Amino acid sequence: MVKHHLSRSAMVLALTVIWAKAAHAEVTLYGILDTFVGYTNAGGKGAQVAEQSGGLYASRVGLRGSEDLGGGMRATFDLENGILTNNGAATDSTLAFSRNAWVGLANRYGEVRLGRQNSALLIMHSKFDAFNGGTYGSFLHNASTFTFRYDNMITYWSPNVAGFTFSAGVSFGGQTSPHDALNAYVGAVDYQRGPLYLGVSHAEQNGANGQLNLKTTFAGGSYQFGSLTGYFAFYRGNNLGANLNTNVEGKYHSVYWLSAGYMVSPALHIAAGIGYVQDSTAQNNNAGEVSLGAFYNLSKRTLVYTTVARLVNRHGATYSLIGNGPITPNTPVRGEGVTGAQLGIVQFF
């Protein structure tokens, strides 16, 4: 993959041109700013206190819009860049829009999008979790390794039909020999009816030799009982190092995660979770975590959150508490655990 470096002035010019071209379309400037202070004490490494970006949500800013083309057809787009609110840097300085850069067409039969897009797995797994797939408290996120988004992707997103929606996509690796090397295939289906939500998503990616050697699956759901919502989630994947040349098909690890959220008041809800990861190899690099969290809405656009978690590794496992941003975790030595707590604030716009 060739990545182009854009200067700051070039990015400003590009955004100006986009804004001018979008004068006759409906365009929304949006973003999420999430900053937290976290304490972790990792076995064999020691304690660390750090301010970081992206605890509950990955911080980002973007432009999304649509244009009515008539006859029920709309042109759509989304340009979204990840940012680090603790130091003002881009999450990926080699990309102008590191999170989303796609254009699409939509009508009552669904939407087709082309470009860099979030994986359906990333979108779905947060729905199985009282911690929204983020913070130190989400063992589902801490212990799952998968591709968040793909370049060169074509996706279809269906309308809601009797509570069911589905999506499917292919990312082209752009190779000549073999022609399907590095291709990725993603699909998801979910169901929402009343208090019940169920979903499953799956992704496979070819290696450099064209053979399928990365496979990832998420499945789970939730059910609301008045003020209490219970969540269950399952992850299975062999993406143990995100290396398309060395991963071994059939060597998986599985994550089992149960969590619950309770609405104490319209502004305050609390969460708890317990999970376990099982390594299918002979190394038995297993781990487990228990978590507690609280989330308080100061307004419709601002919330504060806090979590505490204890993660225990076994044998050679080195899982850690990573939150939801591109942060450098305080990783314990092999087989040691980590305890953490964080306090953060989120602003939506």
Score class of each variant (00 low, 15 high):
76 T>A: 06
52 Q>T: 02
36 F>M: 07
87 N>Q: 08
26 E>G: 03
77 F>W: 13
35 T>D: 09
49 V>G: 14
40 T>R: 12
51 E>M: 08
26 E>Y: 00
74 R>V: 07
42 A>N: 12
71 G>L: 07
75 A>E: 10
39 Y>A: 09
34 D>S: 00
63 L>K: 06
48 Q>C: 04
36 F>L: 03
7 S>L: 04
64 R>W: 01
67 E>D: 12
48 Q>S: 08
60 R>W: 00
21 K>Q: 14
32 I>G: 14
47 A>M: 04
68 D>L: 05
10 A>V: 05
70 G>V: 02
11 M>G: 12
36 F>Q: 15
83 I>T: 13
35 T>A: 01
43 G>W: 02
7 S>Q: 10
95 L>V: 11
100 N>S: 13
52 Q>M: 05
14 A>P: 13
16 T>V: 04
77 F>L: 10
38 G>P: 14
68 D>V: 03
79 L>R: 01
42 A>C: 09
18 I>E: 13
40 T>F: 06
92 D>K: 05
26 E>M: 04
42 A>I: 01
58 A>F: 01
21 K>E: 11
72 G>A: 06
99 R>K: 14
59 S>E: 03
46 G>R: 02
12 V>N: 11
50 A>G: 09
54 G>R: 04
24 H>E: 12
23 A>R: 12
30 Y>D: 15
9 S>G: 09
85 T>F: 00
24 H>K: 11
95 L>F: 10
35 T>N: 06
90 A>G: 12
51 E>D: 07
22 A>Q: 14
30 Y>N: 15
9 S>D: 12
74 R>A: 11
41 N>I: 01
25 A>P: 05
77 F>V: 09
37 V>P: 15
15 L>P: 07
74 R>E: 11
94 T>F: 09
69 L>M: 12
37 V>S: 14
57 Y>N: 14
89 A>Q: 14
64 R>K: 15
63 L>Q: 07
41 N>M: 06
69 L>N: 13
91 T>R: 07
55 G>N: 08
55 G>Y: 02
100 N>V: 07
60 R>T: 04
64 R>A: 06
7 S>E: 10
70 G>D: 03
66 S>H: 05
65 G>P: 08
57 Y>L: 00
56 L>S: 05
30 Y>C: 14
60 R>E: 05
20 A>H: 11
37 V>I: 01
62 G>N: 08
12 V>P: 10
97 F>P: 15
57 Y>W: 01
83 I>G: 13
11 M>T: 09
45 K>P: 12
54 G>K: 04
66 S>Q: 10
32 I>H: 02
100 N>L: 05
96 A>L: 05
12 V>G: 07
73 M>Q: 09
98 S>I: 01
68 D>I: 03
78 D>Y: 00
22 A>G: 14
